[in-house]
Design a protein around this nucleic acid. Structure first.
Lengths: 206, 206
DNA sequence: TGCAGTATCACGTAAAGGGGTGATTTTTAG
DNA sequence: CTAAAAATCACCCCTTTACGTGATACTGCA
């Protein structure tokens, strides 16, 4: 029986994985945490074989959490969970001891494969993730498609222009620029300019 | 007589270059512009051999301006002027047809060398710029030194935290975080979060 | 010892961004 | 032609940044 622990701040993800794995005979979900600290807390008194770990957590980022876990409990295999397919993050997780990288849109079989592969001590990478690593070209397939206008706006934000300046440059209203900005936020799953630009630069969107 | 034209939004820089070159027999400063549009305007009716062009301009960024100039007037040699030594920007300027890259802290001889080299059709790179290009490692020598605290704050901003969140994490006041942020802005010569993060990521400060 | 640089905190104003909701028009693709 | 996607604009409310100015304490170095 492989004991799996889940760390993700989205309850639905935990719920989804739990449900996908509940009929799996060889796998048991032994617990979960909604943030990094609860996870660390848990492992002071409990154990597991595999941790499915979201890369973005409210308190600690996945890369750091992974490093802490692997140095403290080398026997636990960490599989990174991510919404997007970013070569940069994949590399960082791997450098910090992760045994695999799984996209949240993976199907049941992929998740099971990842868990079993990691359990056997090997590394599991989802198809696209592996490709992103070897080609050294971040796959944009798993990035939400941005429209032409969104890309333009993003480029201008990255240049340091304000919404007003962008509006003047594109001959549209500030409200429209704001709309595009909001769409970028929700598509890229960020909540402010700093995260937006970081994401954009790291993904060579700008 | 080599006719030199200067584009820079800082009057002092124009003044400084002018003064450094005024006793040079073979070089004549034939004009200047404080922004990209005035520069383009000028060249519809005038000409020059060399343009010393600041990379950051109020209306158009230097890279784009360089591309426009070089496609419209291929005979004009563009030498990029920059405060910092960023491999990324150097590369971009070169890709867009610049004949050289000069730091604003260059001395008189370097500026003259750059102008003459560009005039002869060759490429001039200041020592560090050349190094930054070939080693593929952005030189940080020319980046203002950031203090420990500033780096910490910067890292947290890049993670998407607000000043308040950073303050709580570092056990300091929001006002202090704000201070560090202001210092980062002035040290790195940026005016908002977007530019700050972009600069930081491109310079591997985060 | 004294100065420069760092780190700290404060207060105020103005500007910009973040979040929600809703609506109309254009474009695009089937 | 028509349905979906994209682009446009508007308003509200609140939070966060931006910028200025100034002050105090600590620290390392000349």
């Amino acid at each position: 029986m492989i004991k799996v622990y889940i760390v993700d701040d989205h309850s639905v993800v935990i719920e989804g994985i739990y449900s996908l794995l509940q009929h799996e005979k060889e796998i048991e979900v032994s617990g979960y945490a909604l943030n990094g600290n609860n996870c660390l807390q848990y492992f002071t008194t409990n154990k597991a074989d595999i941790i499915l770990m979201d890369i973005s957590l409210p308190d600690i980022n996945g890369v750091d959490l992974c490093r802490v876990i692997k140095t403290t409990y080398p026997g636990i295999m960490v599989v990174a969970l991510s919404t997007f397919n970013q070569g940069t993050y994949i590399r960082k997780m791997m450098e910090n001891g992760a045994s695999g990288y799984l996209l949240k849109n993976s199907n049941r079989q992929e998740i099971i494969d990842a868990i079993k592969t990691a359990y056997s001590g090997k590394t599991y990478l989802s198809f696209d993730a592996g490709k992103a690593l070897t080609t050294n070209t971040d796959i944009q397939t798993n990035l939400p498609p941005l429209t032409k206008r969104e890309k333009e706006v993003l480029a201008h934000i990255a240049e340091g222009l304000t919404n007003l300046e962008i509006a003047e440059k594109l001959f549209i209203s500030v409200d429209t620029v704001d709309s595009h900005r909001k769409n970028l936020h929700s598509k890229l799953n960020v909540k402010n300019t700093a995260m937006l630009i970081r994401f954009a630069v790291e993904n060579k969107l700008v």
